[in-house]
Design a protein around this nucleic acid. Structure first.
Length: 208
DNA sequence: GTTCCGATTTTCT
DNA sequence: GAAAATCGGAACA
């Protein structure tokens, strides 16, 4: 399976977020390889997106978002958790896709050990869980996903129905539905107020 | 320099 | 369903 190229990432962020569904995130660790199929993402842009870290311009923390597409943007939040994004758009224009959940494929035992649970559906069903399960931390911030041998993404092939909902954990831009996930997939996160089954405003599409 | 609060998870009721 | 844990970045003075 080929790796995603730079041109894949260098597009309108919501399109990249949708396109990443079904692709395979790969992390090489000293103990072996762990990987998972991406089942849930969120799009964040720049000055036009109040929910984005880049909304108020470039800072030391978010500068990766303004750089070349296809790099990892890893940030620390809530005192405990790292979140993994891939940068998007043309260089100089901010954008990133938050990877929120994967379906474990390879290295499941390693992920179980790191997460302290053996339940597959809970290994990486949330952004913080995902980074913990796959050994991703701030040291990978800025990593080039197109050339790195530590962290990269392979193209997906499986056809699946995708749905869209508001992004999770925000109190701004709540009308913008830039969260994308594979419908009825048991590996997506729940997300408190985002019970999409009862929301009734889910957009559908197809990824493949 | 100080204060506020989050792109979350876990645990308890 | 609700709340605590926990710390670095960003905003304001």
């Amino acid at each position: 399976m080929p790796r995603l190229e730079r041109s894949f990432y260098s597009r309108y962020t919501p399109d990249v977020a949708k396109g990443l569904l079904g692709c395979v995130l790969v992390r090489k660790l000293p103990f072996g390889v762990v990987s998972g199929r991406i089942v849930e993402t969120e799009a964040y842009r720049g000055a036009d997106d109040p929910a984005s870290h880049a909304y108020r311009g470039k800072t030391k923390r978010n500068e990766v978002m303004f750089g070349e597409a296809g790099h990892a943007y890893v940030f620390f939040t809530y005192g405990n958790h790292y979140c993994l994004n891939s940068t998007t758009e043309n260089e100089g224009e901010a954008g990133a896709v938050l990877l929120r959940a994967v379906q474990p494929l390879r290295g499941i035992e390693e992920m179980q050990r790191r997460r302290g649970t053996d339940k597959l559906a809970e290994l990486a069903s949330g952004p913080g869980k995902l980074t913990r399960a796959m050994g991703i931390s701030g040291s990978l911030n800025g990593e080039d996903l197109v050339t790195s041998n530590r962290l990269y993404v392979l193209t997906g092939t499986a056809q699946a129905e995708i749905a869209a909902s508001p992004r999770i954990g925000l109190n701004v831009a709540t009308e913008t539905r830039w969260r994308y996930f594979i419908e009825d997939n048991p590996f997506v996160s729940h997300g408190r107020t985002h019970n999409y089954r009862t929301e009734g405003r889910v957009e559908r599409g197809v990824v493949g």
